[in-house]
Every structure is written in C-alpha cells, then in structure tokens.
Amino acid sequence: MSLLEVRDLRVSFGRRKIEAVRGVDFEIAEGQRLGVIGESGSGKTVTALALMGLLPDNATATGSVRLRGNEIIGAPEVALARLRGDAVSMVFQEPMTALDPTMRVGRQVAEVLRLHQGAESGPARDRVVSMLAEVGLTDPTRIADAYPHQLSGGQRQRVVLAMALINSPDLVVCDEPTTALDVTVQALVLQKLDEVLTASGAACLFISHDLAVVSQVCDRVLVMLDGEVVEAGTVAELFTDATHPYTRGLVATARLELTRPGQRLPTVEDFYAPEARLGERA
C-alpha cells in the first residue's frame, strides 16, 4: 500500500460548480518525492490543499485521498487536525504569511511539537534549536528568539521548513517554497530541503511552475494542465520522450540557456496552441 493514494480527485468551487481539479489520480510511496508542475490556475495548489483537508468552505471535493489508508475527503476536522503537522505537513510560498508576526519563531516551531507530542517547554526548546540548526541556520538560539520580521526571506523559509519537519511527518507538501526567494537563497533552501528529506526519509509532494527547481528535489514529475494530469514520468523521460505537446513546451521554456542571447525564445504556444485549449474547454 502506498503512503498516499489519490483516486479520481475532483474539486469544484461555488454554486456554479466550476471544476478546478478534474479527475486526478496518483500515488506517492514511502519516502518518494513527486513534483507537480503546471502554470497558475492548472489546479496544482487546489490538489495540495485537498490532500491536506484545507480546502475553503465553498469548495466541494469528490473522489478519494487516502493517507496511510485514512480517507481525507469528508473526514471530520478533528481527525484532520491530528494528521496535519504530524503525518503530513506543508510549506507555503510566502513565509511571511505562514508565520505569526507577533510571536518569536522558536515558540512557533515549539507549538507544533507541543500540540502533537505534548512536549514540555524546556525539552521542546532544545529540540527546536537543534531542528533550526538542521535546516542550516547558523546561530539557531538567536534565530529562535527572533521575530519573523527580523529574519531574511531565506531564514524565514527555513524556519517554516523546520516547523514542517519537526514532528518527522511521513509526507511534506511544498507549494512553490522558493518562488519568493532570490536565486542564491533558493539554491540554499533547495539544498537544505533535499538534505532534511534524505535524513528523515519523509516523502514529498513538491509543487512549482519551474521545472528546473522541481528537478533539484524530485525524480518523478506530474504535469498538470486545466485541472488534469496530462503527463507523468521521470524528469529524464519528460525531456526525451514527452508525449503531450504542452509538456514539450514547458521543457523548452524552462531552458533559457539553450537560446542564444537576443534570439527568440521558444514559448509554450509554439508547441501547444491556445486555440486548441479553448476548443477543449468548450
């Protein structure tokens, strides 16, 4: 049995039942890392929220999401709250919105530990400081006593990473975790993510619009388009044997270095015409 099994997941919004996710199937085995790429509006984030049980009230989800055999769709909030932060945790795009600005970050990381493991504050603090060190923060005691606004973007995102990993979850969901960061900081955060995932053996669902970023962490990738998975395979397979024209377009646009400076860059439309997409939707 896989760690996570998603079967015919459909999510629609509002009274008009507009479908954002239209029948998605995939599995993640223990310790496996799966990337999801696609553009804004393709349904990547909604899929992630559905498997965390974090969809907004106006959303309707059908199908099945099983984490260690526990059904997530339709599960009561109490059961979901127990899973979140413990069996499955999440890293969001913007660390400033994921952290409480009025609370020292050490306490925020400790809160996750206390909620799920009932740890005492004293020993919890030691765990927090060592976890902050593990995600590559030098001077972790100072960081633990700092407020979010006193930290840089890369430091904040690593605090969020520490929060996501401190309970040794089976699955970490990362939604564009480095999109708001500079390239140099992004490289560092990706490297740390790779290290801590390897050390803890946690599985990972990694969402990004950037194939190059996904390939730093994941071996297998799903390509989403208009709420559907149009292609799945290893990064190498997507490069050499992409079957869907949209995937070929994504691969081409991801590699700026292949085009001579000043020459026209390939676009997704060269491979996959928007007219065809409109026709498909109608």
Binding site: S40, H209, L211, L256, G262, R264, T267, E269
Partner: peptide
C-alpha cells in the same frame, strides 16, 4: 510563471 516568462522576454527583445 516560467511558461509565460519566454513570451514577455521575447516581447521586450
């Protein structure tokens, strides 16, 4: 998005 980036870069060029 990376997929839109190429279009805007081509436009600027």
């Amino acid at each position: 998005d990376v997929s839109v980036r190429a279009q805007v870069l081509n436009l600027l060029t």
